[in-house]
């Protein structure tokens, strides 16, 4: 089954290039990527509901990861969405355990190889289907 990813820039963070590059690379990994541009948590979850997303990808380099990131997971849970939530961007090491505790499945920093993102997504999504 084709994996569908909803990719968003979190909140007002304007650094769009990374999210687009990763979208393009996941496309080349054979996934269907819906690119949302900038959106806030509520709208990101709504889009994931409408699109039937397996994965929600959040990109942020703007320092809002600890506030808005967990909010996406929380709203998704409330609405009964079981998509995998992952995050990428410039995120301080110390914050990663906090994000994972809040339900973000994985955090990918600069210089992550696309293969590792893709294989993480594949193994998690296939696990949840099985």
């Amino acid at each position: 089954m084709q994996i569908k990813v909803v990719m968003a820039k979190l909140g007002l963070d304007i650094h769009w290039r990374g999210a687009l590059v990763v979208s393009r690379m996941l496309r080349d990994e054979g996934m269907e990527v819906v690119y949302l541009g900038n959106q806030f948590p509520e709208q990101i979850v709504d889009a994931a509901i409408q699109e039937g997303a397996d994965v929600i990808g959040l990109s942020t380099l703007g320092g809002n990861h600890l506030t808005l990131g967990p909010k996406v997971v929380q709203i998704a849970k409330e609405k009964g969405v079981d998509a995998l939530v992952i995050m990428g961007g410039v995120i301080p090491e110390d914050d990663i355990p906090l994000l994972k505790e809040a339900g973000i499945s994985e955090v990918f920093g600069p210089e992550t190889r696309i293969e590792s993102i893709a294989s993480f997504i594949r193994s998690e999504v296939n696990q949840s289907i099985a």
Binding site: E29, Y35, Q39, D46
Partner: peptide, 16 residues
């Protein structure tokens, strides 16, 4: 690759 970049929603952000 059978992949796709679905980029229509970005033009409809105000509908969110």
């Amino acid at each position: 690759t059978k992949g796709a970049l679905l980029g229509d929603r970005i033009r409809m952000q105000e509908l969110a």
